[in-house]
Design a protein around this nucleic acid. Structure first.
Lengths: 189, 189
DNA sequence: ATAGTAAACTAACAATTGTTAGTTAAAATT
DNA sequence: AATTTTAACTAACAATTGTTAGTTTACTAT
């Protein structure tokens, strides 16, 4: 199933619009207008509004899943694994901030098997992260604080990176990675 | 302008529904059904769908604004101020997780002066937080890392606390405050 | 040149949207 | 007891929604 030029234009523009007002608030006419065509013309390229959402979200989710699996099964310390997770989020966010916003805010509008597939990936991702943290606490590389609090405080920051994209853009990619690592691992004090 | 019993019921139920699918995806008929009445009956209590959104969001935003102003002008160290900000977020989140989700996800559907008012409060809030961090760096209580990265990593976690409400609920309020303080200030390593 | 394809168009649809008007029944106030 | 208020109802509206059908236009391959 080849993704044509025009089709990926739709996905890009839809991501931007979905990001601004959410999937439900954006109409096919909005998307069409942003592309300077009529709403009906969109259907030459995509099969439904829902398909656009699926294409935006699932690809990103799969990338997270793939790389997280590699990280978990790699032979490095827990701390190094967490650093890799931080880099993963920064990389994807800088490359695709709108799609990430959409993934974060509109995943619940996925339907049927796409929704289930997404939720499975999300749960697995968190479970993998939990594994890393557990391992880190067991090996005393990570402080023995409440595990869930560690997980959510870290993931919260990583998942909402897209909100700070504009500031992050003006930052050097290296500085961002470095300072974020430092803050998430060693705190601000 | 007194808020009647029934009116606050609508606000509570609407918050829950908005949280699940977003403002745009929830219809007046959805809200009515959840209250076991007809959509038209809602208009005996509220003047529009938009008014519901305003009532949900603005009250919370004003509470953040008020308390943040108190914190900034209090005579304690930067670290103590940040601790107070952490407690502020935890307190409001535990008390009102649905409204907070709504504030985070649906603020862009506010209109005209309500939108401007909200954005002003949000900017001021961030500016106040920035002041605290600046002061902390200047007095060498806070590490000299990129200021914006410190701000966004902290606020990201605090703003999405509502996502972890269920886990947080099972936690002791004191433990949550303590561990979150520790993590945000001194890191996990 | 001819035929085929890609991608736009117009027109229209059935369903759903927020909201209003007018009515009714019960509760509260006079 | 009479009146007003509260809060529900039914019915309907005009606008907007995602989508389909059928048509047209221009480029591509034969």
């Amino acid at each position: 199933m080849k993704v044509t030029e025009r089709k990926s234009e739709i996905i890009t523009i839809a991501s931007q619009l979905f990001r601004e007002k959410g999937y439900s608030a954006i109409t096919m006419r909005d998307i069409a207008q942003a592309m300077d065509i009529k709403a009906a013309s969109l259907y030459n390229h995509i099969k439904s509004k829902q398909e656009i959402l699926v294409l935006i979200i699932i690809e990103i989710a799969e990338e997270f899943t793939t790389v997280m699996n590699q990280i978990v099964s790699s032979e490095v310390s827990s701390i190094e694994k967490i650093k890799k997770v931080i880099h993963l989020h920064i990389d994807i966010t800088l490359r695709n901030p709108d799609a990430l916003a959409c993934l974060n805010n509109d995943w619940m509008h996925l339907e049927d098997k796409d929704l289930n597939y997404f939720l499975k990936m999300r749960t697995d991702y968190e479970e993998n992260f939990r594994k890393i943290v557990k391992q880190g606490i067991a090996s005393e590389q990570i402080k023995n604080l409440n595990q869930e609090v560690i997980i959510f405080s870290t993931l919260s920051t990583l998942r909402t990176l897209y909100l700070w994209y504009n500031k992050a853009k003006s930052l050097n990619d290296k500085v961002l990675k470095n300072d974020l690592e430092e803050i998430l691992l060693k705190g601000i004090v």
